[in-house]
């Protein structure tokens, strides 16, 4: 079996008294587009910077391409492209100069593709970097990263500051390298981006990975929101296992359902002459919130927390629904 592209185990890193990483485990297989989500300060960038050998881990192991992230940093970086979350550029260099510099430090850039990327990102490379906006600085890093040939692309919130059109260009770039079989590690705040692009993902919270898997796997572990309509009263639902947060109104009921109890509940609903059932899996945003909602701290378990997602958040993110 080939080495995992990124293999991080038990990674710990403290800054003074702040424990930024508290045992991070993460495995990214070759060819995956891997999402990495978590709020500010959860340890996303710190994890990435340790993986790049910019920070030294206190404990644990970080390997990329099977090589040690700290010791073999330079060798690894020949095969990797990185877009930092905070792109700080040299005020007295032009954007074009910075792109060339970053590409030359890797020595395998594609000039033709660089030109194409600059055109597609509608970027003016002849201006001094101190005149660029946040989005334009981001473009410098993106063009530099994608115009070099790499086996792994590590992107730390790469689209912050980009307009929606440029975000589409970015997604095309990611899909292009993914089609070539390259691995992409995408840290992001923009959950729709992760949902659309990523095969698998990890959620990090306070320096620990709290959830890992494909979106579907994660959804399986949590309750669907169910809305049912029937001519006969549905108050009997209250006595069934796996039904939570039940709200019964004349002719309809809304509740959260444990996946394991689906058959039982559906049997009951059928018996009541159900006319319509809408079952909605949790969105990534809901999953995310379930790990971060204030109630999560109080309840302590992710399952219980799912039920405590504020209604406003749930309603704001209604997804395409499945009818049954």
């Amino acid at each position: 079996m080939p080495d995992a592209t990124i293999a991080i185990t038990g990674l710990k890193k403290a800054f003074g008294r702040v424990q930024a990483l508290d045992g991070v485990d993460l495995t990214v297989q070759p060819g995956e587009i891997y999402g990495f989500i978590g709020p500010n300060g959860a340890g996303k960038s710190t994890t990435i910077r340790v993986a790049l050998g910019i920070l030294k881990a206190d404990a644990g192991r970080a390997a990329i391409f099977g090589q040690d992230a700290w010791r073999d940093a330079v060798a690894i970086h020949h095969r990797l492209s990185y877009v930092p979350g905070d792109v700080n550029l040299w005020p007295n260099l032009t954007g074009g100069e910075v792109i060339d510099l970053l590409v030359r430090l890797k020595k395998n850039g594609d000039r033709q593709y660089r030109r194409e990327l600059i055109e597609r990102f509608e970027f003016d490379p002849s201006k001094k970097c101190d005149t660029y906006s946040k989005g334009n600085r981001q473009k410098v890093a993106l063009v530099a990263a994608f115009s070099t040939d790499a086996d792994l692309y590590i992107l730390d919130e790469p689209t912050s500051g980009l307009d929606p059109l440029m975000e589409l260009v970015f997604r095309d770039c990611v899909r292009k390298v993914a089609a070539e079989g390259k691995t992409v590690f995408l840290s992001s705040h923009i959950l729709s981006e992760v949902e659309q692009l990523c095969d698998r993902l990890s959620i990090i919270r306070q320096g620990r990975i709290v959830d890992t898997g494909s979106l579907r796997e994660m959804q399986h572990l949590t309750r669907n929101q169910v809305h049912a309509e029937a001519p006969q009263p549905l108050s009997g639902l209250a006595g069934l296992p796996g039904v939570h947060d039940l709200e019964v109104k004349p002719g309809e009921a809304t509740f959260r359902l444990d996946n394991a109890q689906t058959a039982t509940v559906m049997g009951y609903l059928a018996a009541q002459g159900v006319t319509r059932v809408v079952s909605t899996p949790p969105t990534l945003e809901e999953l995310f919130m379930s790990h971060y909602g204030d109630a999560a701290d109080a309840a302590g378990s992710p399952t219980a927390a799912t039920a405590a997602v504020p209604d406003a958040a749930r309603l704001a993110t209604q997804r395409p629904t499945t009818q049954g």
């Binding site: 790049l52 940093a73 970086h77 492209s81 990185y82 905070d86 700080n88 970053l102 890797k106 020595k107």
Partner: peptide
């Protein structure tokens, strides 16, 4: 200090 070395050390710079 100005955060400009991240991207440099993200490349193969040693």
């Amino acid at each position: 200090k100005k955060g400009r070395l991240d991207q440099v050390y993200g490349t193969a710079a040693s």
